[in-house]
């Protein structure tokens, strides 16, 4: 955490710092550290911390969709039922996080300030690639912690105003940045979510269909992964769904998601495993 004195940094320091549009570089300069700064070695005992679970993202006609379940676990405990893990990073991009919740939420907060800071200083937003790269660099700063088991795995996406399409990026703990085509999932339930999306994803699908597919895949992840939370109809806790299009990022209203989720659950009453994918390859051979 940054030292408590940093809120009292005076304007002269801000005035004399070299002209650079990066907030985290400025933060490093004034506080000597960026984010968590705990000396760690291989003997550090593992502590129980909150873990966020599954995030899915997929492209659709005119943009992309990202959704995340609401569960945070601590070992075998359900630590939180209604944590939010999908955020608007800025006006046209979204970031979802899996892994160590405390670090991940802090990373998102810093990333959001970073993007806004750049935009205010330079008068224009970073390109989507620029944002994706910036996140990679920030993530690399957490490598030491990741080696200790405190990994943060984000999924980043947004509407690329220059290329006029939705794009999606995945990361590894070393700060590797990989552009994903079509769809991707991260977190403990990602294997199941990806399997589900393989069957449900359709290129050029409408935004509504893509949101539908995202919700189905999260349901499938919760079905098989104990750390992923399914829709909680009793408490009315539903996945957070974000859509990025040319008009910007829109976090779907809870009532909008509830409506879709209730119908999904109805369908699962009839067919618990979800939509049926016809084995048409076998039929023609």
């Amino acid at each position: 955490m940054i030292p408590s004195s940093s809120g009292g940094v005076d304007l002269n320091i801000a005035l004399s710092a070299p002209r650079h549009a990066s907030f985290s570089d400025f933060l490093l300069r004034v506080s000597g550290s960026m984010g968590v700064d705990v000396p760690l070695n291989s003997h550090t005992p593992m502590v129980d911390v909150l873990h966020g679970t599954t995030i899915v993202g997929l492209q659709c006609a005119g943009g992309m969709v990202m959704a995340g379940d609401r569960r945070a676990t601590m070992g075998n405990f359900i630590a939180q039922r209604d944590i939010e893990k999908v955020f608007a990073a800025d006006s046209h991009s979204v970031v979802g996080i899996a892994g160590t919740a405390g670090l991940a939420v802090e990373l998102v907060r810093l990333f959001q300030v970073e993007l806004e800071h750049y935009e205010k200083i330079e008068g224009v937003s970073l390109s989507l690639d620029g944002k994706a790269n910036r996140l990679a660099t920030m993530l690399r700063g957490n490598l030491g912690m990741a080696m200790q088991g405190l990994a943060v795995v984000p999924l980043f996406g947004g509407y690329d105003l220059a290329k006029e399409k939705g794009r999606l990026f995945s990361y590894d703990v070393t700060g590797g940045r990989y552009e994903e085509h079509d769809f991707y999932a991260v977190g403990s339930g990602s294997t199941f979510a990806r399997g589900s999306l393989k069957k449900l994803f359709a290129r050029g699908a409408s935004e509504t269909d893509a949101v539908q597919a995202a919700l189905e895949s999260l349901y499938d992840a919760a079905d098989d992964d104990s750390a992923t939370g399914g829709p909680d109809l009793n408490r009315r806790i539903f996945p957070v769904v974000a859509v990025a299009s040319a008009d910007g990022v829109r976090i779907l209203d809870e009532s909008e998601v509830e409506d879709q989720v209730r119908r999904l659950v109805e369908r699962r009453h009839v067919r618990p495993d979800g939509p049926f994918a016809p084995n048409d390859g076998g039929a023609t051979s």
């Binding site: 940093s6 809120g7 940094v9 304007l11 801000a14 005035l15 907030f23 907060r109 300030v113």
Partner: peptide
């Protein structure tokens, strides 16, 4: 110069404390 310093100070404060501060 003053503008940039102001943005830095404001962003730093908002990040260290809260946006409302």
């Amino acid at each position: 110069n003053l503008r940039v310093a102001g943005v830095r100070l404001a962003d730093l404060r908002g990040y260290a404390y809260d946006r409302t501060d």
